[in-house]
Amino acid sequence: MCIITISRGSYSSGKEVAEKVAACLHYDCVSRDILLEASDRYEVDEIKLVKAIHDAPSILERRGRKKETYIAYIRSALVSRVRSDNVVYHGLAGHLLLRGIPHVVKVRIIADIDRRSAMEAQREGITLEKARSAIIADDEQRRKWTQSLYGVDPWDSSLYDLVVKVDRLSIADAVDIVCDAAKREAFKTTPASQQKMEDLVTACAVKAALIEEFPEVMVLSEYGNVIIHSASGGRHAQKIRKAVGALETTIGGINSIEVHADGNAPPGSV
C-alpha cells in the first residue's frame, strides 16, 4: 500500500505507464480530476487552476500571489484524495505537492526528444521541427514553473526515487520497474507515515482556507496540533486568530490551533 506519483513531460508516455501501473497494482489512477475536485471545493474556475499549475507565474502574478492561492487549493484537493493510499497520481508536480510523505514513490518517466517530437507531430499533424520547438517550449515552461514556486529543477534526478527512460526500455518494462519499486518495504505505509499524511491533509486544508486573506501564512500540523506562522507581525496575527476560530469545526482532525507571529516557519510547513 503506497502512493505513486509519476512526473512526466508531454509525450513521454508517462500517462500510459501510470495507467498500466494502476491497473497492475489495482490502484486508482488520478490526474486532472484533482483540478475538478479543487474547482468544486473552492469554487474556482477549472481553467484558472489549469493555468496555475501549468504556466510559470509572470512578474505581476508573483506579486499578486494568485497562483500560489490556486496551488494551495490544488494541493489540498490532492492530499485529501490520496490520503487513503493505493493511488497513482500522474498530474503535475505530485512529487513536490506530496513532499515529506515517506510512503510516496516518486517516479519520473522521460523519453528521447526525437521520439516525443515524432509523437507530437503525428498527433497534431505538424512538422517535426515545429513539434520539437513546441516540446522544448513546454519543457521550459515546466522548468520555470517549478523553479519559481519550489526553487528546484524538475530535471534534477535527486527529486525522484526512480527515473525511467522509455526508449530502449519499453512501456511494459517501465511498468514492471515501477510496480516492483512500489512493493518495496521502504514505501509501505506505516502508522507514522500515515500520521504524517493526515497532518499534511490538515495543514493543507487550513492553508487553503486562509491563503486568500493571509497569503503569507505557513501552516504546520503535528498530530492535529496546528501551528500557523505569520511573518506580518502581532496585529496581523490577531486577525488570523479571529479567522481560524471557525476552522476547528469545519476542518476535521484539528486538536488545537496556535498562531505565531515570528514568521520562522519550521521545515515541513506548507
Binding site: R108, I110, D112, I113, W155, S157, S158, Y160, D161, L162, V163, V164, K165, D167, R168, L169, I177
Partner: peptide, 9 residues
C-alpha cells in the same frame, strides 16, 4: 538523466 536508461536514488 536522459543519458541513462534508469536513474535510481
Amino acid at each position: 538523466p536522459s543519458n541513462y536508461d534508469m536513474v535510481i536514488s
